[in-house]
């Protein structure tokens, strides 16, 4: 009996491995191997087609002395903090609103999700036009309120704000759908009981929705932080290389791209990528630790 059961388990487990194998191979070849390779390249002077030479921590020393990396780090942190805080807050509000029974709910859900399925390049091109200083719709609308809209894409003080606005707008739908899914997992009995006890909507939100939604919210926060620290495509497409304000919006990955693909300094570029990987790793670990203080997993 015992052995028979073991055998069955074994063969089931074996089938499991068989099914996982292709994915595992794919991840190993396409993700893990490049990471290992990047770490190796980051310790070399790889450039162009020449044979790389081992230079130890040379690239890393260069990173910590680079003012370009310094300003890009500041830009990236500002982008990440603002877009994660504001973006998560807005998607939470939207999720709550679209969780209510209302007319046209499906239409609104689709509308808010649309940016997620559009390509970043298309989004950036449309927003370039919307944010045009002289002919853009945004500044046109602002003029009705007597506000003279800024030169969104040409003024160093506004250019990062422009990128953040577009970043939030394009990411909001994805987070909203995930939060909405989390909310619909909350059993309705809790709300019915709370109603019987005389709890109002606000009380229900903070005492039922928030705690039970916290695992989903945590997931949204972690993925948003990781994603926002890697911001690149929006900046790359929205701002031309000759844009005089671009130094106020260059992110870390932008510098990585520039070094690796425009200047051909693969070793240095790899080192930037490794540092970013470590930063994200540490941040994620801290968030994992901190979640114990506010995330509730028991329902």
């Amino acid at each position: 009996m015992h052995s028979k059961r073991m055998k069955r388990l074994d063969s089931r487990a074996a089938w499991g491995y068989v099914f996982v194998l292709p994915t595992l191979l794919f991840v190993l070849i396409m993700n893990i191997w490049p990471i290992i390779n990047s770490v190796y390249i980051s310790f070399t002077d790889a450039s162009g087609f020449s044979t790389p030479h081992w230079i130890g921590f040379g690239n890393y020393v260069k990173i910590f002395h680079s003012s370009l990396i310094g300003s890009a780090s500041i830009n990236t942190v500002i982008y990440a903090v603002v877009s994660v805080v504001v973006g998560t807050f807005l998607s939470l509000i939207l999720a709550v609103a679209l969780n209510e029974k209302m007319k046209g709910r499906a239409v609104f859900r689709t509308l808010y999700f649309l940016p997620v399925v559009s390509t970043p390049a298309a989004i950036a091109m449309v927003w370039r036009w919307l944010l045009n200083k002289d002919f853009g719709l945004v500044n046109y609308v602002l003029s009705f309120f007597g506000i003279k809209g800024p030169n969104w894409m040409g003024d160093p003080h506004w250019v990062l704000t422009a990128v953040i606005i577009v970043g939030i707008w394009s990411g909001i739908g994805y987070n909203m759908i995930i939060l909405l899914g989390g909310m619909q997992d909350i059993p309705s009995e809790y709300y019915e009981a709370a109603q019987l006890d005389g709890a109002g909507k606000t009380r229900q939100f903070f005492n039922i929705t928030m705690p039970l939604l916290s695992p989903t919210l945590f997931f949204v926060l972690v993925t948003s932080v990781i994603g926002s620290l890697q911001v690149f495509d929006l900046i790359f497409v929205m701002l031309d290389k000759s844009n005089p304000a671009i130094s106020s919006a260059r992110s870390i990955v932008y510098i990585f791209y520039d070094e690796t693909f425009a200047k051909g300094n693969q070793g240095y570029g790899a080192a930037i990528a490794v540092v970013l990987l470590l930063v994200i790793l540490v941040l994620t670990m801290i968030m994992m630790k901190l979640q114990k203080k506010w995330v509730t997993y028991d329902k």
Partner: peptide, 10 residues
Amino acid sequence: PSISDQASTT
């Protein structure tokens, strides 16, 4: 047009 204006309108 200034260079920063050219960032908006090419």
